[in-house]
């Protein structure tokens, strides 16, 4: 009975089991990049892919989502999301998204583009989609420069901002004024949702994730076009460290581009 005895001893002792639970980490839909991780340290664009992945997982829409990506830094986000995706010529995602959405209206079709990609070369497709009130979601990453090509001025570059095409700082008298996408887009009747978020603080990240959720929800509810603008750090082309980039967002970008929801309707007559 010695074996049994040992069993009894075990019964009386307090047995503690330590379980290890995962609290946070890489979302399932965020996969290692096809072409290798090419983002500069501190770049916020991959956080956009992360937020989209988290939202799609929460909505359970990962396998009905189709991403339409632009030429630019965001092109490489395409490789990071485990969803069907289309890479388009520069500035054209709203056109492609329209083509895809018209074929598959029950899918979530969203674009990811830069500020220049949407507001400069992409103005034609943007206005087309807005006028036609396409039921797609447009996500614009606003880092106030053209990133991939080395930091030229973008429509959202700030007054006095030094870029490779505004070497003495952006002179509004000669180059015009920063374009405010979220406010402008909110004025279109066919738009159900328009918001601007940022990733410079944990609170803002979570708030922006909520905006993306709302935007996708508008599309799932077939209400109208939804738009989310996200202020993104671009340390490399701002010539700032990642941490200083956060400060620049706080002190310069957000005052020019206030965060929040500019339109949020559940029905469009």
């Amino acid at each position: 009975m010695s074996q049994g005895g040992r069993l009894e001893d075990a019964m009386n002792e307090e047995v503690k089991v330590v379980t290890k639970q995962r609290v946070a980490g890489r979302p399932k839909l965020l996969v290692p990049q096809i072409a290798g991780f090419i983002y500069c340290p501190g770049c916020h664009e991959p956080l956009a892919a992360r937020a989209i992945a988290e939202v799609l997982e929460k909505l359970g829409m990962g396998d009905r989502a189709i991403g339409v990506f632009d030429i630019g830094c965001n092109s490489f986000l395409l490789g990071m999301l485990d969803i069907d995706a289309v890479l388009t010529p520069h500035g054209r995602p709203p056109d492609m998204a329209t083509g895809v959405k018209r074929v598959y209206p029950d899918n979530i079709v969203f674009t990811v583009q830069g500020d220049g990609g949407l507001l400069s070369i992409g103005a034609d497709p943007l206005l087309g989609a807005l006028t036609r009130a396409e039921k797609i979601t447009i996500i614009m990453l606003n880092n106030a420069v053209y990133g991939t090509t080395g930091g030229q001025m973008a429509p959202t570059s700030l007054e006095g901002q030094v870029t490779t095409t505004t070497p003495n700082g952006r002179d509004l008298a000669r180059t015009g004024f920063p374009t405010h996408a979220a406010e402008m887009i909110a004025t279109f009747r066919g738009v159900a949702y328009s918001a601007r978020g940022a990733f410079n603080t944990p609170k803002n990240y979570m708030r922006t994730r909520k905006y993306i959720t709302s935007a996708f929800q508008k599309q799932m509810d077939n209400v109208g076009l939804s738009f989310v603008e996200i202020i993104c750090a671009c340390p490399e082309n701002w010539r700032l460290s990642p941490i200083d980039s956060l400060k620049w967002i706080e002190e310069k970008m957000i005052p020019e581009f206030p965060l929040g929801e500019f339109k949020n309707v559940d029905r469009i007559e």
Partner: peptide, 13 residues
């Protein structure tokens, strides 16, 4: 941004 961090919680039962 690089999704390089995983966080775990220990629970003793």
């Amino acid at each position: 941004p690089a999704a390089a961090i995983e966080v775990y919680k220990f629970e003793t039962e």
